[in-house]
Write a protein that binds this DNA or RNA. Structure first.
Length: 565
RNA sequence: GUUUCCUUAGUUAAAUGGAUAUAACAAGCGCCUCCUAAGCGCUAGUUGUGGGUUCGAUUCCCGCAGGAAACGCCA
């Protein structure tokens, strides 16, 4: 809408290019001021004229051509030239856009492939609140890009390789048994891992033992791999349970272990390119010239390490998918790691290093303390999800006991609350986990949006049949409250684009809250029950579109909307 | 020690360099003979600190303070 307006305005305002106008035109913070505004301060500087004077001149020209521009009124106020659109025309073209395929969202990603690396939990460890963040954020970014037409490959790059498994095998041999692991599952693995860490502080030779086991793994030692594989299976069962609850899946589970054999070839390539150096017995890429510590490629015992496995994985992904971008959704604490990895790709001479993006998010803490299995300062994802579903169920019993599919709805609402809560704020912010916040179902929450959807559905169910091929009279939708809802509705495409550009699902979450709020205001002030036939038709059409966008937007975050709740 | 990130109502957070800084929760008041009160309306309350750039700074730059994190054989 804005673009069209700018194009038309160029014809009226000589001396200004379309690009200039595009950059200049903004939406005022307060909608009472106008639908669009043209601040004249930068023009004032160039033209050396009073901005108020320029605004007045522009207003005069635009006012004279207002019909052609689709404007109702132009007003100059203190250096701003404020534009009020002709509401009927605006609503009509806006609603037509919303009725198009894909809710008017242009498929700007058609023909492009994006690889996304997210969730990627470490096996033999519990799936906790921290993992929930990468999983939920990653899933949402996948949906958002898919909406824009991109082909997205969802990669769960499991943390299933490394010295930690040497530690685990050592600990298993010393302090556990087949029976104990079979019985205790991941809890037992966690117990012995913690014990290892504690014991190793007293007896450092344990670390050597662990490294030796890892070297065996890398040399395909049968016993080592068998134990490792067993541990991996135990972990996967747990992870799948969480993914199922969240309704999420991946296109491939290619973990670190996948690239264990590729590191020697990588080392050779680096050697050939003159990038590899020997340092303290290990092989590294010196990044001193870029103010970074060296990037470790091969440990002194010849073993691979996460840097080298990440680089190998990246080379493989490029070959396999020819991605236009590869995104990594991980904690902020890994920023340096990815800077090093991307720099290595650049130094190897691959121009696509520019298409590698690390998408960091803030750390989760509990009661202000770092999460720690050792100190019991931890919350598991599964427990949160279960608790939320239970809570939602209790609320249904209280508020709508006759609801048909209580179990499904409780699931949607409970999970929705948790997922939405994780996506509502900018991902970079640190989060101190709070049961109270996560389990809130009022205010700016997932259930609020879901409730609004259900409410809209309820209206449609009762008054939704619109007679025949009646022509809708859009002049009915021009009062302040309704018009404000229409404007918000039309912001959907912009929200999706913004979210993708910034890799920020919170943009969509906040958009949905704004839309739900605008709808609820409309719901109270513009009843369909008491409306005339003409009003009813137009309002029903609007409610339908709002409902579609609410559900679509929720889908982009990973929320499902119940028809009734 | 070096580097990175964060700091906005009581709390949690918004704000492509623009107009009177915006919501939610918590607090107080009001609204179910009226399409779902998981809702709506009203009241009160905010940019850590010192400079700089700018017509204009919550936003950009430089100090300072407070919080968090990373800094080679863990991932």
């Amino acid at each position: 809408m804005r673009e069209v307006l700018c194009k038309k305005m160029v014809e009226v305002l000589e001396g200004l290019t379309c690009e200039q106008l595009q950059a200049l035109v903004e939406v005022p913070a307060d909608e009472k001021l106008g639908d669009y505004a043209l601040p004249c301060f930068t023009l004032a500087k160039v033209q050396r004229k009073n901005p108020a004077l320029i605004a007045a001149e522009l207003a005069e020209k635009l006012e004279a051509a207002k019909e052609a521009l689709g404007l109702a009124r132009v007003q100059s106020v203190g250096g701003y030239c404020n534009l009020f659109v002709d509401r009927k025309g605006y609503v009509e073209s806006g609603m037509n856009k919303m009725l198009q395929e894909n809710l008017g969202v242009e498929q700007i990603g058609k023909g492009k492939t994006i690889c996304m690396d997210y969730s990627s939990p470490n096996i033999a460890k519990n799936f906790h609140v921290g993992h929930l963040r990468t999983t939920v954020i990653g899933n949402s970014l996948y949906k958002i890009h898919e909406k824009l037409g991109y082909e997205v490959v969802r990669i769960n790059y499991l943390g299933d390789w490394g010295t930690q498994f040497g530690k685990l095998i050592t600990a298993y041999k010393k302090w556990s048994s087949k029976e104990a692991v079979e019985k205790g599952g991941i809890e037992e693995l966690l117990r012995i891992y913690v014990k290892f860490t504690e014991e190793a502080e007293k007896a450092p030779q344990l670390i050597e033992e662990a490294r030796a086991w890892f070297v065996k793994m890398e040399k395909n030692d049968e016993e080592a791999l068998e134990i490792w594989n067993w541990f991996k299976e135990i972990s996967m069962v747990e992870f799948e349970r969480v993914y199922k609850m969240l309704g999420m899946s991946f296109d491939c589970y290619s973990g670190e272990s996948h690239y264990r054999n590729k590191v020697s070839a990588l080392a050779k390539e680096l050697e050939g390119k003159g990038l590899l150096e020997e340092s303290q017995g290990a092989k590294v890429i010196d990044l001193g010239a870029y103010d970074m510590p060296p990037c470790l490629i091969m440990k002194s015992d010849g073993g691979s390490i996460y840097h080298s496995r990440d680089i190998a994985a990246l080379l493989d992904r490029k070959k396999k998918y020819d991605f236009s971008k590869c995104l990594y959704v991980t904690g902020m604490e890994q920023t340096l790691h990815f800077k090093q990895v991307f720099k290595a790709i650049e130094l190897m001479g691959y121009p696509w290093y520019e298409n590698l993006v690390h998408i960091p998010f803030g750390l989760v803490s509990l009661a202000g303390e770092k999460l720690s299995t050792r100190n019991g300062n931890i919350v598991y994802a599964e427990d949160i999800l279960k608790e939320a579903v239970e809570r939602a169920g209790a609320l249904i019993e209280e508020k709508n006991p006759t609801l048909q599919n209580k179990v499904e709805v409780a699931h949607m609402v409970g999970i929705g609350a948790v997922v939405f809560h994780d996506l509502y704020n900018q991902r970079i912010k640190n989060v101190d986990f709070s049961w109270e916040d996560v389990l809130s179902f009022e205010g700016t929450t997932g259930p609020y949006v879901q409730y609004t959807y259900a409410r809209a559905g309820s209206v449609l169910q009762k008054y939704g049949e619109v007679s025949g091929n009646a022509v809708v009279d859009y002049s009915v939708l021009t009062d302040d409250v309704t018009f404000s809802l229409v404007k918000t509705l039309l912001g959907y495409e912009n929200a999706v684009n913004n979210a993708a550009e910034k890799y920020e699902p919170s943009v969509v979450a906040r958009y949905l809250i704004a839309l739900a709020m605008a709808f609820n205001r409309f719901y109270h002030e513009c009843p369909i029950l008491k409306a005339s036939e003409k009003e009813r038709q137009a309002r029903v059409l609007l409610v339908k579109q709002v409902q579609k966008v609410l559900a679509d937007g929720c889908g982009l975050l990973g929320l499902e909307c119940p028809e009734e709740m």
